[in-house]
């Protein structure tokens, strides 16, 4: 072997690099919901501007949400959420940075529902926690949708509930995510 192989090998690597690492799919209007359920009151909020980004080859998965984008049924709940609990002036966004495990086992050309697990760092209210969550990846005609439901504990993120509303707000919040990754980059 000698240097005449240099060029094709090099080109091959570059090509491989581009194919392998250039494929990301994302959405800017994914849906994130959260629920707090107690015997006194149910609180539900929706954010329809969730950014979700998935690198199809490496499995890198990232979420980013503007905290001010959550909509509540009661105007005052929304105000209290932003002012007193999530403190959206101080911490404008919540993020997740992690990896979707075993992404190489998913065949993106074949329709179906795949059970997936994501692990990574969840950043809420200035605090980062290692989390893992299970969910489903639906593939239909090449369109990828990620669905997941998991729980977080408010005290893990230094969000405290004052005594007067202890009966109204659950210490465990259920978070539900539904992102249709219909854009490519």
């Amino acid at each position: 072997m000698n240097s005449k192989y240099y060029l094709p090998i090099c080109c091959g690597f570059i090509l491989l690099a581009n194919v392998a690492f250039g494929q990301s799919i994302f959405t800017k209007n994914g849906k994130t919901l959260f629920f707090s359920t107690t015997s006194v009151e149910d609180i539900k909020a929706t954010n329809n501007q969730t950014i979700c980004l998935l690198n199809l080859q490496t499995g890198e998965l990232q979420f980013s949400i503007l905290n001010k984008g959550f909509r509540f049924r009661k105007a005052l709940m929304e105000e209290h959420f932003n002012e007193n609990y999530i403190e959206s002036n101080k911490y404008p966004k919540s993020t997740f940075k992690g990896t979707l495990l075993d992404i190489d086992k998913i065949n993106f050309t074949k329709d179906g529902v795949y059970a997936v697990t994501a692990i990574g760092d969840l950043f809420i209210h200035g605090i980062t926690q290692k989390v893992s969550a299970v969910g489903n990846m639906n593939i239909s005609k090449g369109l990828v949708t990620i669905i997941s439901k998991f729980k977080i504990v408010l005290s893990d993120y230094n969000i405290s509930i004052p005594k007067t509303v202890l009966k109204n707000i659950s210490p465990n919040i259920e978070i539900s995510i539904n992102c249709n990754l219909d854009q490519k980059r």
């Binding site: 990301s24 994302f26 800017k28 950014i51 980004l53 490496t58 980013s64 503007l66 966004k93 980059r185």
Partner: peptide
Amino acid sequence: ISAQDTSDIMKELEKEIQ
């Protein structure tokens, strides 16, 4: 460079929303 890509794309997307 590719490994940084995901975070870079994220930053761009966040900017658009903000």
